[in-house]
């Protein structure tokens, strides 16, 4: 914390914090963090989107708050303090969702609560926010949340499109294509089942690492 010079709001360093999670540092496909529960809500695009947004807000805000109070936290109860801050933010998000987007909050059910134990959040707090300034921590949290959300949205998009023929609840595959109406197409119900989310993540990892050889594990 010795550097005194004022950084611009979006210096190259800050910008990198925001963008690197989208590709070579993606929380899901590269860091393998926070896969946990959030995948369960990717059967449809809308809940996936709300979940992505919620995770981003919680990650960014908790990094920001922890970074603000980082010098005062006693190291012995560090984990508890972090959990309390994260849990409080998640409760706020949950209450707001219940009040303003009730039908989505019903679909997310317990998975909102599980944001608390999402490893990305604790991971970013431990790895970054405890040693960096609030603004940088906020951007780092937001970047990771967005990188995470991007995968959720990709999954939600393909699973809903291929599994139910809809997007955001609207029918996009023409009705006349369906076998029932004399067409050739039927929805792949398998896409909607939980295991397909994992297989899809596997495929995303495959594509990403084929293009970016430096990420390949030995």
């Amino acid at each position: 914390m010795s550097e005194k010079e004022k950084e611009p709001m979006f210096s190259a360093k800050i910008w990198k914090l925001l963008t690197s999670p989208f590709n070579q540092n993606n929380p899901i496909t590269v860091q393998i963090l926070g896969i946990c529960s959030a995948l369960a809500v990717t059967a449809k695009l809308k809940p996936a989107f709300v979940m992505a947004l919620s995770v981003t807000i919680v990650t960014a805000c908790s990094s920001f708050i922890i970074s603000l109070i980082r010098k005062s936290i006693p190291s012995r109860i560090r984990i508890i303090v972090q959990l309390v801050v994260v849990a409080a933010l998640v409760i706020l998000v949950d209450q707001v969702l219940k009040a303003f987007v009730y039908d989505v909050s019903k679909q997310l059910s317990v998975f909102v609560g599980l944001i608390i134990t999402n490893c990305i959040i604790m991971g970013r707090i431990e790895a970054f926010a405890l040693g960096n300034k609030p603004w940088a921590s906020f951007v780092d949290g937001a970047g990771n949340g967005l990188g995470y959300g991007m995968i959720l949205i990709i999954l939600g998009f393909f699973r809903e499109l291929l599994g139910a023929g809809t997007l955001w609840g609207y029918q996009v595959i023409p009705d006349s294509w369906y076998v029932a109406n004399g067409g050739f197409y039927s929805n792949n119900g398998l896409m909607l089942l939980p295991p397909m989310a994992l297989i899809c993540v596997g495929i995303i990892i495959w594509i990403q690492r084929s293009r970016n050889k430096s990420l390949i594990e030995k």
Binding site: A43, K44, K106, Q107, S109, G163, A164, N187, G189, L192, L193
Partner: peptide, 8 residues
């Protein structure tokens, strides 16, 4: 329903 499988 609360959490039945979408599409099924």
């Amino acid at each position: 329903h609360k959490s039945e499988t979408p599409g099924l």
